[in-house]
Amino acid sequence: MSDDQRPRPQPTPETQYFWDGTKAGELRLQKCGDCEKVYFPPRPFCPACSSRNVATMAASGKASLYSYVIHHRKVPGFTPPYAIAVVELAEGPRMMTNIVDCPQTPQALVLDMALEVTYHKMDDEISLPLFRPAKG
């Protein structure tokens, strides 16, 4: 993949901690101090109980493959066919990502397979969280 052409995310004041995390090699989630809900995507309040008493936390980076498509059309920054996947993090939330270090085929991409996070540096500010088959 020639990743420089990927759509570049623009951090906002509410999401900056997440992108600071991936830049530092850490996948950060948020957890509610009142109801203990762990959630994603970023918001400075709890979507389960509306509390503003939330804190960031480092996720384990462990995940499983929840669902995906293998896209066959041309998109700038991607070489088809490539999987657009949703993974379920060990902490519970799901996120969209790509699966790397793995053939982009239905045979290789098996639902519920164990994955681990890896980071793809787009530029000095943005590193994207991608996932690869878990080692060991």
């Binding site: 995310p9 999401t15 998109v75 657009i84 996947a85 969209m96 639902l111 994207l128």
Partner: peptide, 22 residues
């Protein structure tokens, strides 16, 4: 824009079927 588009979707045909395999 931050949490889906960077991973290569291009419109509904690439996004709407994502839950199907599950």
């Amino acid at each position: 824009g931050q949490f889906e588009q960077p991973f290569g979707p291009m419109g509904p045909p690439s996004l709407f079927p994502i839950p199907v395999l599950r």
